[in-house]
Design a binder for these strands. Structure first.
Lengths: 125, 125
DNA sequence: TAATAAAATAGGAATAATTCCTAATATTTT
DNA sequence: AAAATATTAGGAATTATTCCTATTTTATTA
């Protein structure tokens, strides 16, 4: 923890690591307040930027104008519900995964962002 | 043209169709002003939203907090320069393309957004 | 064509996500 | 413990985008 000394930064990271919901800064802020009541929104934004710079988290999508974050930094694929904005991790076939890596490798791409769109269960109705 | 009667809407669409740069609303606005000097930014935004709703254009990415648009609505893949934000269309191997479509088909996804990140030539230096 | 109805617009105000600023506080180093 | 450094709260500033309304343009009808 030597590099995460500040209590606010720890809270931001911990909140993000403890959810699969790919939350917004605002949502992370709300969760952090339960741990540290007087934490400020600016601090959440600053630490998200800092953690992203360090490669400890990633900005995973922009849904309806709002950035969404993820503490899972290993490559993975997302599905976003165009209706409610829900973001989920999804598995893909080995075949597709291999083809993605090969493409990135062949062409010298630094990173891959693959997102599928599909209505979630709740929005199907 | 029956459905694109307004001169402003035509200008917005024409500007977007005549570039490969995946421009922002602001950039489209500037180009439109060369054709229609008193066009307003709000009109550009409104027509972009309307054209997107109609499926005539797509919102292709959000780069540094700014939405970028594209008049090419057939599925294709993008490469974004993380340094300057440049957005380009790229070709992918048949293998990858097939794997993407198969995945979407198998899982019932409505659409696919694949973006690779890599520094552009200018930013390489 | 002229009159009427409907759609679209300019211009600017409002909104909302994010960034920036500064005095105060916490943390680290000496 | 004192000095130096990093971080923070709180709120102001910024900026992309949306919203509002009186006016104008376009389409429809007679």
């Amino acid at each position: 923890m030597a590099t995460n000394y500040s209590s606010r930064r720890q809270a931001v990271l911990q909140v993000l690591q403890s959810t699969k919901s790919h939350p917004s800064a605002e949502s992370i802020f709300e969760q952090c307040r339960l741990l540290i009541p007087n934490i400020s929104l600016g601090t959440v934004y600053r630490n998200l930027a800092l953690l992203e710079e360090r490669g400890e988290i990633i900005k995973v999508a922009n849904v309806a104008g709002v950035d969404r974050y993820d503490a899972t930094v290993t490559p993975h694929v997302h599905r976003i519900c165009p209706c409610c904005g829900r973001v989920d991790d999804v598995e893909v076939s080995d075949n597709l995964r291999d083809a993605l890596y090969k493409e990135a490798d062949d062409k010298g791409y630094q990173s891959i962002q693959l997102t599928f769109y599909a209505k979630c269960k709740e929005c199907e109705e």
